[in-house]
């Protein structure tokens, strides 16, 4: 592999996380390369949620370290991770249904008008935020959404997912994590979201895709990280393996291939 030239943008080494007697992460490693879509698959309870939560700052590991651009980082909260440039789109979307698309995209990061009105009266720059929200959505080909001021609850599931991804793409400067982005969507809407992921990748942002949907993972992922029993047991190239192989490795029915990356990184 080309790890000598291209350094991973986000890494985790030797992560351990225990909940009482349950070991969710058992010396798990993780590597995300720049400008790739990395699929993360694993059986239920394999620890992939814990892994993602550590990367997103939602869970603090018992031991092990997370590195961004080769430098150790310590996330105490999701806000820390976000400030470091990692945006997460949660499975339940984390959008406020009654607020407008523009309000949701800038929720928690509103921009104020310049001058005295913004400084002293905290006046929001609503037109500016709406303009930027519209730009962001059209950049991702999402302008079928008719009105930036309409409440999110009037959107379809795919459109909501689109807003959530657009928000992540607008603010994520380094990495975007998508947790089961197509789980609640219909066939057509899933297609739209997958296409959206490729668009985001084209703009140079790497994506971590957690999904149970093998066809979706195999369709868009450049590499697939397979998690089993709390650790990474394999990273495969979807061109070299079939979905059945991936499931077999994931469930332990097939011995994992040797880890070229890990040896190179170690």
């Amino acid at each position: 592999m080309s790890t000598d030239v291209v350094k991973p943008i986000l890494q985790a080494r030797d992560l351990v996380k225990r909940y009482g007697r349950v070991t969710a992460l058992d010396h798990a490693d993780f590597d995300l390369m720049p400008n790739e879509i990395l699929g993360v698959i694993g059986d239920n309870g394999a620890g992939k949620s814990s892994l993602i939560k550590v990367l997103a700052g939602a869970v603090i590991p018992d031991s092990g370290e997370v590195l961004m651009d080769g430098k150790p980082v310590h996330f105490r909260s999701p806000l820390d991770a976000r400030e470091a440039g990692i945006e997460t789109v949660y499975q339940d979307l984390a959008l406020a249904p009654a607020l407008s698309i523009a309000d949701n995209m800038f929720l928690g990061r509103e921009t104020r008008k310049g001058g005295a009105m913004g400084k002293w009266f905290r006046l929001l720059d609503r037109s500016g935020m709406q303009k930027r929200a519209r730009e962001q959505l059209s950049a991702l080909g999402l302008l079928t959404i008719q009105n930036i001021k309409q409440p999110v609850e009037t959107l379809s599931g795919g459109q909501r997912q689109g807003v959530a991804v657009a928000r992540a793409a607008a603010f994520g400067s380094k990495v975007i994590i998508l947790d089961e982005p197509t789980a609640a969507l219909g066939v057509k809407e899933s297609r739209r979201v997958l296409e959206l992921m490729l668009d985001v990748k084209k703009r140079g942002l790497p994506i971590i895709l957690i999904s149970h949907n093998m066809p979706h993972v195999f369709e868009v992922a450049d590499r697939i990280h397979i998690h089993r029993l709390g650790r990474r047991i394999a990273v495969i190239d979807p061109k070299d393996y079939s979905m059945a192989d991936a499931v077999a490795i994931m469930t332990g029915a097939m011995p994992p291939p040797p880890m070229a990356d890990e040896m190179a990184a170690a």
Binding site: A96, A98, L107, R109
Partner: peptide, 17 residues
């Protein structure tokens, strides 16, 4: 806007920072 967001979906508000 945060007041509305908290009443609407407190989890979303928290995740939005």
């Amino acid at each position: 806007r945060h007041i509305y967001a908290i009443g609407d979906d407190p989890d979303a508000a928290r995740l939005a920072g």
